[in-house]
């Protein structure tokens, strides 16, 4: 039986598959795709049989350092680079060792939550889950990282 596509195939660009269900919009935030962006983006949320979200971005091949930040909220996401309707590259996101300017520190008294010219920076460690250690104040974010996305 031929599978019915919910969103049409894209000719060129990036398809991010296996995003944890409900996190597609957070993925867009991490990628900086927001009001004013010009990219053509399709979002499918809560795909019923696999409990996942999918994001398709046309005419933009995301580089590894751009997409690996997605691993913060969705470590099983798969990146597909599409050229002329064919998948030319497929790989899992890899958790980076450090992130800058993506997540704000949960400590309201941290220097990064002031008007100082400093971006929040975290060292990432893997414990039972993902742990973000603030380089400045040392506070650790373990749960609900999405809540602290900038």
């Amino acid at each position: 039986m031929k599978r019915e596509l919910r969103v049409r195939r894209i000719k060129n660009g990036t398809v991010i598959d296996h995003i944890a269900a409900g996190h597609a919009l957070n993925v867009l935030r991490i990628l900086g795709i927001a009001d004013g962006s010009t990219e053509v983006v399709s979002v499918v949320m809560n795909v019923s049989d696999q409990k996942k979200d999918i994001v398709k971005i046309e005419d933009w091949e995301l580089a590894p350092d751009e997409v690996d930040k997605i691993a913060l909220i969705s470590p099983d996401a798969i990146i597909n680079i599409i050229r002329d309707y064919e998948v030319v590259e497929k790989r899992k996101v890899v958790l980076p060792s450090q992130i800058v300017g993506v997540v704000r520190c949960m400590n309201p008294n941290c220097i990064t939550n002031t008007d100082e010219p400093v971006k929040p920076r975290f060292v990432i460690r893997r414990g039972e889950g993902v742990e973000l250690h603030c380089v400045y104040c040392g506070r650790v974010i373990t749960d609900q990282i999405a809540e602290f996305l900038i």
Partner: peptide, 29 residues
């Protein structure tokens, strides 16, 4: 004046800076 500017200025006047500040992570920054 923010702390970053204060530090940039004072580090031109001294050979080392001792800093106490109410914000956590201020010294690292």
């Amino acid at each position: 004046e923010n702390l970053a500017d204060t530090i940039a200025v004072v580090s031109g006047y001294a050979d080392a800076i001792v800093l106490r500040h109410p914000k956590e992570g201020a010294a690292r920054m």
